[in-house]
Computed example of a mutant assay.
Amino acid sequence: MDGLATSHIVNDLDALRERYAGLSGADLLRPLMTTEFRGRVALVSSFGTEAAVLLALAAEVDPGIPVIFLDTGKLFGETLRYRDTLIKRLGLTDVRTIEPDAVELKAADPEGLLWQTQPDACCHVRKTVPLNRALAGFDAWITGRKRFQATTRAALADIELDVDGRHKINPLASWTPEMIKAEFERRDLPRHPLEADGFLSIGCMPCTDRVAPGEDARSGRWAGLGKTECGIHLSAVPRQVSIA
């Protein structure tokens, strides 16, 4: 991407942030889904413990929004069933279950044990690469990340820019656990079946553990490995960076 194109995108990012400053939830989703990125935005969901809130907000704006769900082949059965429950409950009409390429997966992880020795490489072939393919043709994508989830997300912006030029929208970035809980209750949304058993952030089965009292919600992910993200959220341009 040349300097002129990059500069235009950053200016656009600044304009979007200024135009929608202070908005969150459905108030932020509605103009971005129906005007700014109409027909060019997808929502990426893990169908985890807090996913129902974002999915419900988006479905209220447009139940036909493309929802990308990454099935790594190592998810909990409870997550797959929860996905089906929410699809029906919220009336979502375009949920796309994306799997890793079989040939690439066999080459990278023939025994299915890559998560034990190279968790970053496992996430790359099972999540990052499939997501990049699934997002082709979209100019923006929506995530359910929040600042309270982990120290690594404390400075999360409402609207970001990936290094590939695609906008990333985080409508719940400023929401608190209390706000999430209240929205679950207000909408009478079903909870992920593993949450009651101490799983507060749920990914692949071998890399997800229960969260101890007082720890942040993502401490059960890749516990003891010094790893905090799968990789799909590591390409956003930091807010303080200026690209010329």
Rank of each mutant, 00 (worst) to 15 (best):
P193K: 01
G226K: 05
N132S: 08
I142S: 07
S46P: 03
A102H: 13
E36C: 13
V53R: 02
T72I: 00
L16Q: 05
D14H: 07
E78W: 02
E183M: 14
A58H: 12
A21D: 06
C207M: 04
R153N: 13
A52N: 09
G39Y: 02
P193F: 15
M33T: 13
W222A: 13
Q118P: 02
C230E: 08
R30D: 10
P130Q: 10
F69R: 11
L75V: 01
R126H: 02
T152A: 11
L156W: 02
R147C: 06
C207D: 01
I87A: 06
D2E: 13
L200S: 04
V67Y: 12
D188F: 09
L90K: 13
P31N: 05
F138S: 01
I68H: 01
T6I: 14
C204F: 12
E215Y: 03
C123S: 10
G224P: 09
Y20V: 14
R210Y: 06
D2Q: 08
D27W: 11
T97S: 11
I98Q: 11
P238V: 00
E18S: 14
S7G: 05
F184M: 11
F69Y: 07
A42W: 04
R133T: 02
G22E: 12
V129H: 01
R126N: 06
T72A: 00
A121E: 12
H8S: 14
D84A: 14
E36W: 09
E99N: 07
L200N: 00
V125M: 09
A182G: 03
R153G: 10
V10R: 02
V237G: 14
L200V: 03
V103P: 09
A157R: 04
V95E: 07
I87N: 02
Y82V: 09
A51T: 12
N170C: 08
E36I: 06
A236P: 10
R218G: 05
T117L: 08
D62M: 13
L4H: 14
S24F: 10
L105N: 05
K74E: 00
T208V: 12
P206V: 00
G112W: 05
L172W: 06
T85G: 04
S174P: 11
T72W: 10
L75F: 00
G39H: 00
D94A: 07
S46K: 03
R89D: 03
P193I: 09
A58E: 13
P206D: 09
L194G: 02
E160V: 08
G3Q: 15
A107T: 15
P130S: 01
D216C: 00
E18Q: 08
R81N: 04
P110M: 04
A182M: 05
A134W: 01
N132W: 13
E60R: 15
G39Q: 00
G48I: 01
I9P: 04
Y82E: 06
I232E: 12
R89K: 15
L32C: 14
I98F: 00
V211K: 00
L114P: 04
L156S: 05
D2H: 07
L172G: 10
T49I: 11
F148K: 00
L90P: 12
K88Q: 12
D94R: 12
G3R: 15
A244V: 10
A217I: 02
M179G: 11
D164F: 10
G203F: 08
A236F: 08
D209N: 02
F69H: 15
Y20D: 08
K227I: 03
V211A: 05
T97E: 11
V211W: 01
R186M: 09
S174Y: 07
S174A: 07
Y82K: 01
